[in-house]
Every structure is written in C-alpha cells, then in structure tokens.
C-alpha cells in the first residue's frame, strides 16, 4: 500500500516539475478559464452543503479544496 501511495504521489510531482513548462496558456488566452463555471469549485455553496451531508452520512470527508486556474488576473 505504501509503495502504491508513493507512486501515486509521484504523478503530480512529475507533472509539476517536468510537464508544466510546456503546458498552459498565455495570459491573454484565459477567456474560457476565467468563466465561473470553469473554476475548480464553481459552486462553493453547493460544495459546502454537500460536504456537510456526506460528512454526516459517510466515513470519508475532505481532500478537496484549493483554487487555481481562473482569470489569472492581477
């Protein structure tokens, strides 16, 4: 299990170290990313309610959150 986890963690690490420089868009090409519906958490209220429901009914919670993407403005 531990080895599996380490491998799993390597994926984002590799993506962030090697892949990133070639990935992405220019600052003026973020028109679609700037849309509210493209935000990682596009409906924070729904997400909060859902978290509360599933936290109360199931044994798992959290693990999501954090932003990124978006307009890239300022």
């Amino acid at each position: 299990m531990k080895i599996k986890l380490k491998r799993l963690l390597l994926v984002p690490l590799i993506v962030s170290v090697t892949g990133c420089a070639n990935l992405g868009v220019e600052p003026w090409e973020r028109d679609l990313l700037a849309k509210k519906e493209m935000a990682l958490t596009s409906s924070p209220i729904d997400a909060t309610f859902d978290d509360h429901i599933y936290f109360s009914k199931e044994a798992s919670s959290g693990g999501k959150g954090f932003g990124g993407g978006g307009c890239g403005c300022n």
Binding site: C20, G24, L40, G62, G63, G65, F66, G68, G69
Partner: peptide
C-alpha cells in the same frame, strides 16, 4: 489536524486539472 498539498495545472485553453494529497 490536517495538512493538504495541492497542484493545479492549466493544460490548455479548455482544460484544467488538480491533484491533492491530504493527511488528517
């Protein structure tokens, strides 16, 4: 107590991805 690490990456004009690890 929990701690979380996350990487978000814009892949192209249409695609964005996120990866998180959390420990609680």
């Amino acid at each position: 107590a929990d701690i979380m690490f996350g990487v978000t990456q814009v892949i192209n004009r249409r695609l964005i991805m996120a990866f998180n690890y959390s420990y609680a």
